[in-house]
């Protein structure tokens, strides 16, 4: 077995995973697409200040934060074949970890991030273990219900703002230093988290663990017949994804300097799914592209009408109805990119 032949296998692995839903940014160009997206994001702050539009950085931070959340959902949805409809709950829990600790005078971002990851991992472990006892429509409904449970918990938690949410007195600090106080440092910190998440998930999906997860997505019975129990792998992926989404929540709380139960609503979970599918599930660069496209589309539609959600809804329905293989397939055909 030479090293050269191994390389064939590894480069072939990524596009082969999702033959049906490749997405706009799938395929062999994905590494290039990722490099371009990260480069473009990295040079955005100087450009924003050059053209005198500092708000651009704020928008970009929001995009990067949701890209992290979408990326984490993709591990569950695209690689694990679990249609989870409660993913926004993890983002919200992460955000609340910041707000609640901050209201008690704990402002250090490392402590907050650890708390967020711990809380989200625990919530994912418990709800995932119960949800994964079921399949199909059950799984979708149950994850949705658990997401709502977290939502209502925060709504009724009047000590921390309840329905109205909670405003942060200041952004998180690092060892007492207000390193995230400026919008540009926060943007770069978020971008760094996104880059680390991207590289980490890339390694993970190609690892032993990731290979079993991808195999389970394609054919769970075959995986059992060679001696793997899908449950343990799917649950682990669910927990990792939950923790990463919690990290996105930490950044979101800092970006908005405000948290509210609305972050956890099921519409948010639906939007995250749209981002992942729009960009291309089962690819890592896809959800990032999907988050960019979705949030820009949202801003753009909002320019025309307060009823922009109507436009989004019509777009979703039309894409599903008139494209074979869902949205990703349709967008693909729109761009005339044929797949083998």
């Amino acid at each position: 077995m030479s090293a050269g032949t191994s390389d064939v296998a590894i480069s072939g692995a990524v596009p082969d995973v999702a033959p049906r839903r490749g997405g706009v940014l799938a395929g062999r160009g994905s590494a290039l697409a990722a490099a371009l997206i990260f480069a473009a994001l990295a040079v955005l702050p100087p450009i924003a200040s050059a053209i005198g539009d500092p708000f651009l950085v704020v928008t970009a931070t929001r995009i990067v934060v949701f890209a992290i959340a979408a990326l984490s959902l993709d591990l569950v949805l695209g690689y694990g074949a679990m249609v989870s409809f409660g993913h926004a709950a993890f983002v919200g829990l992460g955000a609340y970890a910041v707000a609640i600790l901050s209201s008690h005078g704990i402002d250090d971002v490392l402590v907050q991030a650890l708390a967020a990851i711990g809380a989200c991992a625990l919530f994912a472990l418990v709800t995932g273990a119960i949800s994964l006892r079921t399949k199909g429509v059950y799984f979708i409904m149950i994850t949705l219900a658990f997401g709502q449970m977290a939502y209502f918990f925060m709504v009724s938690l009047s000590a921390y703002g309840g329905d109205d949410g909670l405003t942060l007195s200041a952004r998180s600090t690092l060892f007492g230093l207000p390193v995230l106080a400026g919008d540009i440092p926060l943007f770069y910190a978020s971008l760094a988290v996104l880059a680390l998440a991207f590289l980490g998930l890339r390694a993970l999906t190609l690892s032993r663990f990731g290979r079993v997860l991808r195999g389970t997505k394609e054919n769970p019975v075959r995986m059992q017949a060679i001696g793997f129990r899908p449950f343990a792998f799917q649950l682990t992926a669910y927990v990792i994804a939950g923790a990463l989404a919690g990290l996105a929540g930490v950044l979101l709380a800092n970006q908005a300097e405000f948290v509210s139960p609305a972050y956890m609503s099921w519409q948010r979970s639906g939007e995250l799914i749209v981002m992942v599918v729009l960009g291309g599930m089962g690819t890592l660069v896809g959800p990032i592209g999907g988050a960019i496209a979705f949030l820009l589309l949202e801003d753009w539609l909002a320019l025309f009408s307060e009823h922009w959600k109507l436009g989004l809804g019509v777009l979703l329905v039309l894409l599903v109805l008139f494209t074979r293989g869902g949205i990703a397939g349709g967008v693909e055909r729109l761009f005339g990119k044929a797949r083998p």
Partner: peptide, 13 residues
């Protein structure tokens, strides 16, 4: 163990 998360599995000789 298959709970290994970093090394590419397809390169394990």
């Amino acid at each position: 163990s298959s709970f290994r998360f970093l090394r590419p599995a397809s390169k394990e000789a």
